[in-house]
């Protein structure tokens, strides 16, 4: 962030988008503002505050659960509907990642829009097949994976929709950190549908390493249709290191991240077994 010339309190989503479009890359929306302060973009001279756009609500709808873009991690962790969604994984982890005063700042919109490699919300939302309410030329709802692929600068994230289809699924989130107050060296999220001992549908997402969160259909498909037992998971655990690119950086080597991947998927197996009991 260079010299900020203007801090604009948008009166509505529409107002915010219009302002952003007029200024193009010189404008940025403020969610929690955490990233904007931390990694200043010299091109940005106007900040558009979304606090007055009514985007903080979390509510249950016919489609699932709508999370306003400005909902903070703490608000998500306190949300009763979220505490029941996918057996509570979103609420549980929203109350545990980062640290307490950041959890009261970080917004789900900011997390999704920024999508850092080590973000924990994005991979988990991906695994849960979340949708994004976007306001751009028009208001539309797109799958999160699509939004992340084709994000445009002035597109405003109005909120996230967690689809009803996964409400009774089992959300799994595994992250490995050096201390509890740390970003993950590796993150694995999954959403499992288990019906009478059989995995109906599985979705595995890997994040928390260099590069963005990625769905791993080759792993997920290996589980689909299998009963919950070691025979189902063993090949997944065994092949993961080959099928997933885990990267390498100063926080952890590629070899170690592959070990973590095994640990995460072993954890998934234990989680599934636990769920069965």
């Amino acid at each position: 962030m260079g010299k900020i010339a203007e801090y604009y309190y948008a009166s509505s989503c529409r107002d915010a988008v219009e302002r952003a479009r007029a200024l193009d890359s010189a404008a940025a929306y403020v969610g929690g503002g955490v990233e904007l302060v931390l990694r200043r973009n010299p091109g940005v001279t106007t900040l558009i505050d979304l606090g007055r756009c009514g985007l903080s609500e979390i509510r249950e709808t016919d489609e699932g659960i709508d999370i306003g873009a400005l909902a903070t991690l703490t608000e998500m962790s306190h949300s009763v509907p979220l505490q029941h969604y996918a057996h509570g994984s979103v609420a549980h982890w929203a109350g545990r990642v980062a640290s307490n005063n950041l959890r009261d700042m970080i917004t789900v919109g900011g997390a999704v829009a920024r999508n850092q490699p080590w973000n924990d919300m994005v991979p988990h939302l991906l695994a849960l097949d979340a949708q994004v309410h976007v306001l751009d030329d028009e208001e539309r709802t797109v799958p999160l994976r699509e939004f992340l692929r084709s994000k445009r600068g002035s597109a405003l994230v109005m909120g996230i929709l967690l689809p009803k289809a996964n409400a009774d699924a089992f959300g799994y989130l595994w992250r490995f950190t050096r201390t509890e107050q740390d970003i993950p060296l590796l993150h694995v999220s999954a959403c499992l549908h288990i019906d009478t001992g059989v995995i109906g549908q599985a979705s595995i997402v890997v994040g928390g390493r260099p590069g963005h969160a990625e769905e791993c259909p080759q792993l997920s498909s290996q589980l689909t249709g299998h009963p919950v037992d070691h025979a189902a998971f063993a090949p997944v655990i065994e092949s993961a290191g080959r099928l997933v690119d885990v990267g390498d950086d100063l926080r952890a080597s590629g070899a170690y991240r592959r070990d973590l991947l095994r640990a995460a998927l072993t954890g998934l197996e234990e989680f599934a077994a636990e769920v069965m009991r």
Binding site: S99, R178, T179, E180, Q181, D182, I183
Partner: peptide, 11 residues
Amino acid sequence: LFDYKILSRRD
């Protein structure tokens, strides 16, 4: 302190 990890209360 983001990358040099001292122990937090939770650790």
